[in-house]
Design a protein around this nucleic acid. Structure first.
Lengths: 359, 359
DNA sequence: GAAAGTCAGGAAACCGTTTTCCGAACACGC
DNA sequence: GCGTGTTCGGAAAACGGTTTCCTGACTTTC
């Protein structure tokens, strides 16, 4: 048996094959193997081929730890979700992971679960692992304090944003999304539009409510009643819809802060004998397929395109790793997905003064 | 300036601090620093303290790549989701990540997106990164071919299972879950139980349907009509409920293969004037909160406890990494979560012969 | 035919950490 | 005052790659 004195751990069937094994089989030195595999130096075609087939035969995979050690690059990034991984994080993560994978980067998954201690633990771990960069995501779009200061590697905030304007953040243009929702309702002839949304202390709720109000004001209109702040739940949607029906039966559209709320509203309206979209048009937010498609009728909704957003974040991170940082807050447009809940009524609304700038 | 000839990459503000920096500051050798930080060897308390405070002062974090290189352990594992990361993968991943994090292991996230090419790419990547183990998950519980053979590291299949019985798989006891659902319906006095579920070619659908049928047979009963196979959607639930109402109005309970289907059934029943649970009791599967709680009334459902399952998978993987492999198929019990959709009717069903073994 | 130049591939340093081995200093007993 | 043991800490090898430098063989040129 050749003199292999590597610390063989008994549980392992055959320790991983190293560049040394390849060199031995090909009858060359390790330096030559490295050159052959990486296309460096000058080697005879025959030698190169001999090395390549030896590597192939042994199923050689270079030990990335060793590569990392002398290149200083690990080709890994960390992805920290500040809160529990959920519906919003997933498309983000998938988009980012996909974009990073294309750049041969692997992703460390870190679920901080809304716990600052866990978050800092993960940050230390990632720094210790010498990741090339970090993506920070979270369920809420509200700005949060930077995860660390003076970090030796670039950080990109996705969906969530950093309170430090010098940090790189990628956020959905929620106000723009609300604008699109309102514009669409106006375009299909609705004029008495109510807004039902989540808790007032929730950043997204206020941003969307404000944007909707503002857009209506630009069109010379007002929201039908004050925005109804509550919870991000179907139950609240149902409850709020009943409030609306009790107070003001003349509403012809409801723009909701989430698809869940919209769905509750749809159910309550139907139970009260109002038809969607004929009597009341409905727009949700999030374009969450199970909610938007399960709704009766299927729901028009604002899509924040989180997967694209994740991809953008990853691209910005890759650029920053390569020395081309793009600090600042980058907004990412939302897209309105139109479905039956805002289909043009069979009985068209009376033509009012046309909304200015509406195209 | 002291002779630092490290390859300084210009983009980086201050290269990460190494054990050498600590040694220099503390006025000792690197070996001593290592001993001080890891509690090895015999050092004077004063020396140890001097090293620790130097490390503290510099914010030293050992380079894990270097540690990996000479320990052979990377303290990382790969998590491959064979299909797109989704509703089922998330709790699994969270559970696994949590259990692994407690063991100081970091997790590489790999989303294979139902693409065997991607899957093999990720497998190679993970092997190249010398992960200590791999967890394979997927959306379907059906057995799949092993991700690789003769791998040098342990693999645990979670939720999904491997066709090779020597592989370690952790799967939910779906049949047991169906049994619990049926037992509960029997216990609240229902006798004419129908079953609506997903596509017949879907493993989970047939397993649950068969288990429900068998359990009823044990109680001397039969399913009300053949199982209705369709899709995993609310629309199918609504449609199937109408079929049921048209064909057989005497059903007093429906056990559904998923919460989405159950929700569709609930909506259709309500639209047809049937009360849930008074006229028809309803049980779902998955205990997906948004569906089960959004449903009117809230849905009794079978919970596969995926987070626990993920944790179990991680624990089995950690054990296997430590040389204590537990090959074979491990089943994980389901839990029935009882809500209003199966509340005891206000008008109790006539007491039939009591179901045997019902407690 | 000798000097110069080119080409192929080997030897060794290096990355950052751990661990083994060894030597120096010191205390102790005789 | 000299061997012996103990304690502390340094030197160096090892992990698995990459890269630089160098040498030897061959080719070219005058």
């Amino acid at each position: 048996m050749p003199g292999r004195k590597a610390a063989e751990r008994p549980g392992n069937t055959g320790r991983p094959v190293t560049i040394n094994d390849v060199a031995q089989l090909a009858g060359v030195s390790v330096g030559t193997v490295s050159k052959a595999l990486n296309g460096r130096g000058s080697l005879r075609a025959e030698t190169r081929h001999r090395v390549l087939s030896a590597a192939e035969q042994l199923g050689f995979q270079p030990n990335r730890a060793a590569v990392a050690l002398n290149s200083g690059r690990t080709y890994t990034v960390g992805m920290i979700t500040t809160d529990t991984i959920g519906r919003f994080s997933i498309p983000l993560m998938m988009g980012a992971e996909d974009a990073l994978g294309a750049g041969e980067m692997s992703v460390f998954l870190c679920d901080a679960r809304d716990d600052p201690i866990r978050e800092q633990y993960y940050l230390r771990t990632l720094l210790s692992r010498r990741v090339d960069g970090i993506i920070v995501t979270g369920r809420r779009t509200q700005a949060r304090p930077p995860i660390g200061t003076g970090l030796p590697i670039p950080v990109v905030y996705a969906f969530i944003s950093s309170t430090d304007p010098r940090d790189c953040s990628v956020v959905p243009d929620e106000a723009g999304g609300a604008h699109k929702a309102v514009d669409h309702l106006l375009a299909v002839g609705r004029r008495r539009i109510a807004h039902i949304t989540g808790p007032e202390h929730h950043h997204s709720a206020t941003v969307r409510a404000t944007a909707a109000t503002d857009r209506l004001a630009e069109a010379g209109l007002r929201l039908a009643g004050a925005p109804l702040f509550g919870e991000w739940s179907e139950a609240w949607g149902r409850q709020a819809a009943q409030l609306l029906l009790g107070a003001n039966a003349e509403v012809d559209a409801v723009f909701c802060g989430s698809d869940q709320i919209a769905r509750g509203v749809a159910d309550a309206l139907r139970a009260a004998g109002r038809r969607v979209p004929d009597d009341v048009a409905l727009v949700g937010f999030d374009n969450w397929d199970v909610m938007a498609l399960g709704c009766q009728p299927p729901l028009t909704s604002v899509d924040m395109e989180l997967e694209k957003l994740g991809r953008t974040a990853a691209d910005l991170l890759l650029a920053a790793i390569n020395g081309e940082a793009s600090p600042g807050r980058h907004t990412h447009p939302c897209r309105l997905v139109i479905r039956d809940s805002t289909a043009a009524s069979s009985t068209p609304a009376p033509a009012l003064d046309s909304a200015p700038g509406g195209s």
